[in-house]
């Protein structure tokens, strides 16, 4: 096996292990986005999930860059990712500049992020489309057949992670789980804000502190985040723990 194939296998093994252990879905999706960006050698990967109103929201991204985030969020109601969600088919835009007329607003925001090519594959659950996996490339070009299949496989894993209840045949139950994923993403970002303000940290450092505390205390990330934003757990507790761990590691 090539090094890349090893990497792909390792990534899937790690994800299936995390799923089996009931790891927090937000953490898993963030890891999946990062794996996907590395395996497919693209500049940024975003997972966008539709709310019941049909608007797309970022539930995980491989990049913390504001410009990338803006380009993902610009596809709330238009753009290649939104088209993919509506049609349920992959969308391949090897040269975004040439396709700018199709999605003018998105193209302008994406250009600022240095995005030259865009690919999107649907997140499918039986006959329903729940969102899309979105790939940004820094140079023009298409993904080859194998890469597209890999992207689709990663999108499928993400969907499985979101709909964890195997018995979720009922559409209402599925919607509930999707809504929970969207709500918990909101609370997670709020918790990062709490730690960022209280500890004067940037967002990646705030996220790291949150994860560290959750892991070391065997608490789900979403539960810790919720306790922080409702001030049931003081920010200082999480921040002090991160400092102690950093000091220990140094």
């Amino acid at each position: 096996m090539s090094a890349r194939e090893d990497d792909i296998v390792a990534s899937f093994v790690s994800m299936s292990g995390s799923l089996a252990q009931g790891q927090d879905v937000n953490e898993l999706l963030t890891q999946l986005a990062a794996d996907c960006a590395r395996l497919l050698d693209v500049s940024a990967v975003g997972l966008l999930l539709a709310d019941p109103r049909g608007a797309l929201h970022v539930v995980a991204a491989s990049s913390d860059r504001v410009a990338d985030l803006e380009a993902f969020q610009a596809q709330r109601a238009q753009g290649p990712c939104h088209t993919c969600y509506l049609d349920g088919q992959p969308v391949n835009v090897p040269d975004l500049a040439a396709a700018a007329a199709r999605w003018p607003e998105f193209a302008a925001v994406a250009a600022k992020a240095g995005v030259a090519s865009v690919h999107a594959v649907p997140m499918r659950l039986r006959d329903a489309i729940v969102g899309a996996l979105n790939l940004f490339g820094a140079t023009p070009g298409s993904l080859n057949e194998a890469d597209l299949r890999l992207a689709q496989a990663l999108a499928d894993v993400a969907t499985v992670a979101l709909i964890q209840d195997r018995a979720a045949a009922d559409r209402n139950l599925v919607n509930e789980q999707l809504q929970n994923a969207l709500d918990s993403r909101v609370i997670l970002e709020q918790a990062k804000g709490v730690l960022s303000y209280s500890g004067d940290l940037d967002m990646p450092a705030a996220y790291a502190a949150l994860r560290q505390y959750a892991r070391d205390h065997n608490i789900k990330l979403t539960e810790l985040a919720s306790a922080l934003v409702n001030r049931a757990v003081p920010a200082a507790l999480v921040l002090d723990h991160a400092r102690t761990r950093d000091a220990g590691a140094a």
Binding site: R185, E189, G193, V194, S196, Y197, S198
Partner: peptide
Amino acid sequence: ERVEVYQATGMIVA
């Protein structure tokens, strides 16, 4: 309904 708004909301909470 945007990530930066969620994060800023958390900063105001703190």
